[in-house]
Simulated assay, not measured.
Amino acid sequence: MKIALANLRAPSSPAESVSLACAAIAEAGRSGATVICFPECFVPGYRWPNAVSPPPDPVFLEQALVVVAGAAADARIAVILGIERVTDRGLQISACVFNPDGTISGWQDKGQLDPDEEATYPAMGIDRHVFTVGSLTFGVVICHEGWRYPETVRWAVRRGAQVVFHPHASVAEPGSYRPVTFADPANTFHEKAMLCRAAENTCYFASVNCASEGSPTTSAIARPDGTLLCYQPYGREGLLVADIDLSAATGLLASRCKISPM
């Protein structure tokens, strides 16, 4: 089975986020991928702390879902779209999962916010889900919750997920280390955590970020034994498409956990 990660540039506007997403969906469909995953809040664009962003626009977000649904149906591919949504609890970081016919399979809301996000995205999710397309069962954990709360990954694998997708958002900070090789010991722990999440649970872990100059993390896929399957060169925009062997994702170590997760 092929899966695709949309390692695209950060959109310059909400409108561009939708056009970039649709182009990537079409390309992933042509590649033969079963599913494509986008970075965190790719639509309308992640709201960085201390940056000026337009106010949430529920009408735009609803229309974006309609357009992306059409692109998924045209390409016959499942889509995990990092998106924000307006709820009665406030603005929510979420992922909308589309079936290959363009219908919405469901949502995975971010349940563990980074402390820096709480002022911008006050709403937190309380429910976790797994999704199925064909022979693939997968979960979604969003950025901080995948880095700092490994229970979120184990929850999905214990419920049959062979792949856990990890949309995230990360850019270079002033004076930060700028890696050129994956999981460089001089870099932060984050890329090592990708390998750990896979090895801890005997699953594939597929993490996707936008392409940007000096980014501390790139998009990558870790095998169920914790080794690296592939990664996107740092700062290079494009799809990361990989063949995975679902029979290797047994979930063995997740299933052997004697402590009840979440």
Results as ranks from 00 to 15, higher is better:
M1H: 01
K2D: 08
A4P: 01
L8Y: 01
R9T: 09
A10E: 10
A10C: 01
A10S: 08
S13G: 06
P14K: 10
A15K: 11
E16I: 06
S17F: 00
V18D: 02
V18N: 01
V18P: 05
V18A: 09
C22M: 08
A24Y: 07
A24N: 05
A26G: 07
E27I: 08
G32F: 04
I36Q: 04
I36V: 11
C37P: 02
F38I: 07
E40S: 07
F42A: 04
F42S: 06
Y46K: 04
W48G: 06
N50G: 08
A51M: 15
V52K: 10
P54V: 05
P55N: 05
P56R: 07
D57P: 02
E62L: 14
A64S: 15
L65E: 14
V68Q: 09
A69F: 11
A71T: 05
A71Q: 01
A75E: 05
R76F: 09
A78Q: 09
L81M: 15
G82T: 07
A95Y: 07
C96R: 13
S105R: 14
S105A: 15
G111Q: 13
Q112M: 15
L113F: 04
E117I: 12
Y121W: 08
A123Y: 11
I126Q: 14
D127T: 15
H129G: 11
V133M: 05
L136S: 00
T137F: 01
G139S: 08
E145Q: 06
E151N: 09
V153S: 00
V157H: 00
R159G: 00
G160R: 02
H168N: 03
A172I: 12
G175F: 02
T181K: 10
F182S: 01
F182L: 06
A186K: 03
N187S: 12
T188F: 10
F189C: 07
E191G: 04
A193T: 14
L195Q: 12
Y204C: 10
S207C: 10
S207T: 13
V208A: 01
C210N: 12
C210P: 03
S215R: 13
T218Q: 09
I221L: 07
A222P: 06
A222I: 03
P224C: 04
L229V: 09
C230D: 15
Y231N: 06
L239K: 04
V241T: 13
V241L: 08
D243T: 10
I244A: 14
D245T: 15
L246A: 07
S247T: 15
A248Q: 14
A248G: 05
G251P: 01
A254Q: 08
S255W: 11
C257Q: 11
P261C: 14
P261Q: 11
P261S: 08
P261A: 11
